[in-house]
Amino acid sequence: MHWILQDGFLSETGWDALIANLERFGIAYSVHAVVPKTGELLPPPGIDHANVICIGSYSMRHVAAKHGWIPGVFDLYAQDFGQQRAHWGHHMLNAGAVVTTVRDARFSGEQMFVRPINDSKYFSGRVFDANAFSAWQSAVCDPAANHATSLAPDTLIQLSRPVAIYAEYRFWIVGGDIVTQSLYKRGSQVMYSSDVDERLTQFVSARSGEWSPHDAFVIDACDCANGMKIVEINTLNSSGFYAADVQRLVLALDQRYTVK
C-alpha cells in the first residue's frame, strides 16, 4: 500500500514517528501539497495502482474518490451528529443539543457550545457567549462574505450547554478494535500522554461494539461532570496523533488494507 502524506501536516505531533515507521518497515510513501477544497495533489502522484491511503486534510477525500483509491479516506461526512446520537443516545456528551442552521440558530443562556453536525472541518467547535455568537452568525450570513471554507448560512450546526470536562482522550479504531489511544487534554490544559484511564478504554470499546460509523475511525471521549461521554468522531486520515503509538497504528492499517 502507498501512503500519501500532506506536507502541511508534517509539523504535527507524531508525524516524524509516522515517517520513521513507514521507512522502518519499507512502506512506500510520498509527500504532496494539497489544493484546498478540491484536494488535488501537487505534484500529481505517480502511482500505478489503487491501493493508497491518504493522511492529511479532509479535502483529500475528493481526490481519493476520483482515483478510486482503496482505502483512500475513511470518509465520515454522512455519519453526522444526528446519526451518532441515534446510535449512542445519552452516551453522547451533547445528547441534548439543538440542531439548526447558522441562519436560524437562536442563542440561549450565557454560553453555548457550537460546532458543525458533521466532520466537515467548516470550523472548530467552541464555546461562544451571546455577543460573540451574534457577531459570528452575522458574519457568516453576510451576503458579501467570502469564507475560506464552505461555511454558509444554511450549514447545519449543533448548539448545547457547556459541560465541565475533566479530561479528554482520543481512540483510534481499526477493524472494530482500539489500536492505540492518547490523553490530549486535562481540564483546560493541553496534555499529551499515552497513560489512558482504563475506564474510558472500556467505555469506548463498548460504544464502538454497539455501532461503528466506518471500518476505521477516531473516537474522542471524555470524563466529565455527567460521567464518561463520547465527544465526537473524527476521520482517521485527518486526525492528529497526540501521544498515540504510531507504530501500532501504521502496522494495523498496513496489515488490514494492503492488497495482497
Rank of each mutant, 00 (worst) to 15 (best):
S11I: 08
W15M: 15
W15V: 00
W15A: 09
A17M: 08
L18R: 11
E23S: 13
R24K: 15
A28E: 15
A28M: 07
S30P: 02
V34L: 07
K37M: 12
K37H: 15
G39T: 10
L41N: 05
P44W: 08
I47P: 00
I47F: 02
N51Q: 05
V52W: 08
I55Y: 10
I55D: 08
G56E: 06
S57Q: 05
Y58R: 09
R61A: 06
H62W: 12
A64C: 14
A65H: 13
G68D: 12
I70K: 09
G72H: 13
V73S: 09
D75T: 10
Q84L: 15
A86G: 03
G89P: 02
H90Y: 04
L93H: 04
N94M: 06
G96W: 04
T101P: 10
V102Y: 09
D104A: 11
A105Q: 03
A105P: 05
E110Q: 10
E110I: 01
F113C: 06
V114L: 14
V114D: 08
I117G: 02
D119T: 14
F123N: 12
F123K: 12
S124C: 11
F128Y: 13
S134W: 01
W136G: 06
D142E: 11
P153V: 11
P153C: 10
Q158A: 12
L159M: 15
S160P: 00
S160L: 01
V163L: 07
A164V: 14
A167F: 03
E168V: 03
I173R: 02
V174I: 14
T180M: 09
Q181A: 15
L183G: 06
Y184E: 08
K185W: 10
S188E: 15
Q189E: 14
V190M: 14
V190P: 04
Y192N: 15
S193G: 06
D197W: 03
L200K: 01
L200Q: 08
T201W: 07
V204Y: 04
S205I: 00
R207Y: 00
G209Y: 06
S212G: 11
P213K: 13
P213N: 13
H214F: 05
A216G: 03
V218D: 03
I219H: 00
D220E: 11
D220N: 10
C222A: 04
N226V: 14
N226K: 13
G227W: 07
M228A: 13
V231S: 02
E232I: 09
E232N: 09
L236I: 15
L236V: 14
S238I: 00
G240R: 10
Y242L: 02
A243Y: 03
D245L: 07
V246N: 03
L249D: 04
L249M: 13
L251P: 08
L251D: 09
L253W: 03
T258Y: 01
K260F: 05
